[in-house]
Design a protein around this nucleic acid. Structure first.
Lengths: 201, 201
DNA sequence: CCCGCTAGCCTAATATGATTAGGTAAATGC
DNA sequence: GCATTTACCTAATCATATTAGGCTAGCGGG
């Protein structure tokens, strides 16, 4: 009884498994069972677990960039900002395993090649209407990425789920606040906000 | 040859190991070797690996809150904001394993008890000088937490390390931008930033 | 229609890590 | 100095990753 496995099918199976039972349950054994095959058979299609995970990350990053690109089409300013953020958050909720896969550490080559840079570029595109000085763009891109990622991460780990306001409202306000931040982007200051001050941790 | 292990010593050993070789290398076997003891011996002091991880998280969260409290003493406004952010970032750099332990998911009871809430309260305290309406406080607290955590997380995973501006500069600008965001905190809008719009992911 | 080969899948074996059961001896208290 | 506690150990079991080598389904050529 031959299933007809290919590297792609293995990765897709792993991604489904991840969404269904969490990235931590994506093991060779788990994927094999889910695919109706013995564990060792997977090694004909992916080098090892690390290879599988890397492919999962690249696939998810790509899918995410596709969604983001579609959501941004024809939007600008705050609408684009909200669309981008919502795309990430909605994706994380609809596909928690795939979103988690997105955070798997990649080696330099994989990181430079895949959907990662595409996502960065799309974030950069959102900034266009905010007219920031050229030199400020990368920083603003990073803040947006950090805030979106951080919010989703905290939300998914349950950090928000047991304090008063629902996290939907906070998300709403986060978008509003980021929009305000971009519209009032500060001049580069020469006053250092002294790091490594008194307590070297 | 008795070492004189206690739960605390086991946890401290695990935390040192985490800082030295990464949280992913904190295994019963690894901790036991590091402590100069056989693996099974650890089970007299911690229930299992999960218990160990939980204790690591609580210990680190507490230590982090201590540092933050000390850093905030006598500061207000943007100075307090920068001090808080720098405390987190410096801690993450000085103790990557402990910081990572900080992100270990906790059950409700542990989460409500330990240093987690203390950290949240300290973030709330930073907002005092920004005079936000009572109802906006929790949202602002969450945005700050999300941005700090997201930035540090992206920085540590190397996402910033191979694009042009150094991440120190971006961090500087992030603090400036968050300060601007808090000073220009937007009125609650009734215009929904429509989530779940076209592509349900 | 059948022969032979390629590949897809399997069994078997090894290694590492978690966890439990039960034993031995060092420290502690009387 | 003896008994008890308990810190630590050995041995065994189970799950997962990974490698080596075997079997056969099903395809291409005759």
């Amino acid at each position: 009884m031959r299933i007809g496995l290919t590297p792609e099918r293995v990765v897709d199976t792993a991604l489904e498994l991840a969404d269904a039972s969490g990235l931590q349950n994506v093991t060779m054994t788990g994927v094999a069972q889910y695919a109706g095959v013995k564990t060792a058979s997977l090694y004909a299609h992916v080098r090892d677990l690390n290879d599988l995970k890397t492919r999962m990350a690249l696939s998810s990053l790509d899918e995410l960039a596709d969604h983001a690109a579609e959501a941004l089409a024809g939007r600008a300013g705050k609408n684009a900002l909200a669309a981008l953020g919502n795309t990430y958050r909605d994706y994380a909720r609809a596909h928690p395993g795939r979103y988690a896969a997105t955070r798997i550490p990649l080696d330099h080559t994989s990181a430079a090649t895949g959907g990662g840079p595409r996502n960065t570029d799309l974030t950069g595109a959102v900034l266009r209407e905010y007219q920031l000085p050229e030199a400020e763009r990368p920083h603003a891109t990073r803040v947006l990425g950090a805030t979106f990622h951080g919010f989703i991460s905290l939300e998914q780990s349950g950090s928000f789920s047991h304090s008063s306001p629902g996290s939907d409202v906070s998300w709403q306000r986060t978008i509003d606040a980021l929009d305000a931040m971009l519209r009032h982007w500060p001049e580069p200051s020469h006053t250092l906000n002294a790091s490594h001050n008194e307590n070297p941790a």
